[in-house]
Write a protein that binds this DNA or RNA. Structure first.
Length: 478
RNA sequence: GCCGGUGUAGCUCAAUGGUGGAGCGGAGCCCUCAUAAAGCUCAGGUUAGAGGUUCGAUUCCUCUCACCGGCACCA
């Protein structure tokens, strides 16, 4: 039986257009999905959009649209980004999908309720009338003033459904310690463990309809709307059919092998989500991978700093493959990384134009001039390729995609060196064994690169197959 | 405040209890199959600072400084 592999990204919150950070997460998940597909595993790759919540409701109102129209438009942008970045997702789940998503959320809610883990309680909070929302003590000025309105907050009571998260602190700790729930990287795992050591508190799982109008109603309690966590996190199972009339995909793919997320939402994925599943008596995900953020010139990207980069613009200007390459190579997979257009150009020229592109051109130019049938590459080359292959696989499985790329480029550099040392152009007929080796190196490089740069790899492999030089893969940038 | 992490060549980072490495950028040399690409050589860096353990530490311990992250209803 074929091994299955189910990977998800976080679903994007559609209160604003995609930014480069979304592109990073898409690209990383895409590499893993393609890698496992190439290993002939049965892969399902899910991404999607979180389209509920008061923020979206208000953003829609501001732009004079209905919340659904607004969500449709922004979601379309995310779908378009996926396409332009060559993301190979199998489905795009939307939380406003009443057919695909809502029934599963209601279903899961009921399962959790059946287990006695939902309870209606009075929630007492510090409320700012100006903001129309509750504030935590931490953000208040002088302990009682709203930081935006500088007015004293009021103590307001409202009713919420609460999820008894506290029950699950110990169970989660055991699952994480035993490795049943794996959290990558180690430092993030330790953060979660220390959080669990302090003990989790129950959390509210719904809001009164007056406070949160845009969302899924609580089953059996029309006065309340399901709050974001219970709604959004559930996408990971509704995206593969949980709660629908066909459980085929769900039965096959759940639990997720990897939830790839940003480090900012780790707590929700490492604590709340598994606790919900435990309560509902469903299997918990196997691995949660938290990636870092992109800075620009060392600064966090923000609209006020004016250093926000549009992924669409970068793709338009440099091509999807170049953007993918930069995100995957220059941003360490599990850490923060920096992106500027200047660095992107530098990387493009040094690695793609002068490295891969030029190597492909010089090898193909020589190789296509002569007939290479029946020649064998040297043993040494075959060994080198094997060594690189196992390094690449190991790095990918450790989620160090940038280091996997470094290994592939070591192979390209090895090939360049052979060309210089052997000078096959001087007497091609007597150097057929050398050229055969070089073609093999190029072919293998392209194969290893398939998950990272699918289009480029295809072009190289096609050129080799057709024995044609093909187009200039990455023209040098000025 | 509490907990954790990091601090190595201009930049990004790797490594080891015993004469400090790679990639990129920069300088020089050289070849010409190739996208004026590739290859070779060069950076004299007190491995943040101070102290300790040790025959010997950059790698172990302590302290100081700097920076970063976590400490729950912002998704």
């Amino acid at each position: 039986m074929k091994k299955k592999f189910y990977i998800t990204t976080a679903i994007a919150y559609t209160n604003a257009s995609p930014h480069i950070g979304h592109a990073l997460e898409f690209a990383q998940a895409d590499v893993l999905a393609r890698y496992h597909r190439n290993k002939k595993e049965d892969v399902f790759f899910l991404t999607g959009a979180d389209e509920h919540g008061q923020k979206i409701y208000e953003a829609a109102k501001k732009s004079g649209k209905s919340p659904q129209e607004f969500a449709d438009e922004v979601s379309a942008e995310f779908k378009s980004l996926c396409q332009k970045l060559e993301i190979s997702n199998d489905y795009f789940i939307r939380t406003t999908d009443k057919e695909k998503h809502w029934p599963g959320v209601s279903n899961l809610w009921e399962k959790i309720a059946e287990n006695g883990d939902l309870e209606k309680r009075k929630y007492q909070g510090l409320y700012c009338v100006g903001c129309e929302e509750f504030k935590t003590k931490k953000v208040l000025i002088d302990g009682n003033k709203c930081p935006i309105h500088l007015k004293e907050v009021e103590i307001v009571e409202e009713e919420n459904w609460f999820f008894k998260l506290s029950k699950y602190s110990q169970a989660l700790k055991e699952k994480i310690n035993s490795g049943e729930l794996n959290i990558v990287p180690e430092s993030r795992k330790n953060e979660i463990l220390s959080l669990l050591n302090e003990g989790l508190e129950d959390i509210s799982f719904s809001r009164p309809k007056e406070k949160l109008s845009w969302g899924i109603p609580v089953p059996g309690d029309e006065s309340q709307i399901i709050y974001v966590w219970c709604d959004a996190l559930t996408n990971y199972i509704t995206g593969i059919g949980y709660g629908s009339n066909s459980n085929e995909l769900f039965d096959k793919f759940w639990p997720a092998d990897i939830h790839l997320i940003g480090k900012d939402i780790l707590r929700f994925h490492a604590a709340i989500w598994p606790a919900m599943l435990l309560s509902a008596k469903l299997p918990i995900p196997k691995t949660i991978v938290a990636h870092g953020f992109i800075t620009s010139n060392g600064h966090k990207m923000s609209k006020s700093l004016g250093n926000v980069m549009s992924p669409f613009e970068l793709i338009e200007k440099y091509g999807a493959e170049a953007v993918r390459y930069y995100l995957l190579k220059e941003i360490p997979t599990l850490d923060d990384g920096d992106l500027t257009e200047e660095k992107l150009k530098e990387r493009y020229n040094s690695d793609l134009a002068n490295g891969l592109g030029n190597f492909a051109a010089r090898v193909l130019t020589m190789a296509t001039k002569i007939d290479l049938k029946d020649f064998q590459p040297k043993e040494e080359i075959i060994l080198k390729i094997k060594e690189i292959e196992s390094a690449v696989n190991k790095k990918i499985e450790e989620f160090k995609l940038n280091e996997a790329l470094t290994a592939i480029w070591e192979l390209i550099g090895y090939g360049d060196l052979i060309v210089n040392n052997e000078k096959p152009w001087e007497n091609p007929e007597n150097k057929k064994d050398v050229l055969t080796g070089l073609v093999l190196i190029l072919k293998k490089s392209a194969e290893f690169l398939l998950p990272f740069l699918p289009k480029t790899s295809d072009k190289i492999l096609t050129s080799i197959q057709n024995n044609q030089k093909g187009e200039n893969l990455f023209p040098r940038l000025k």
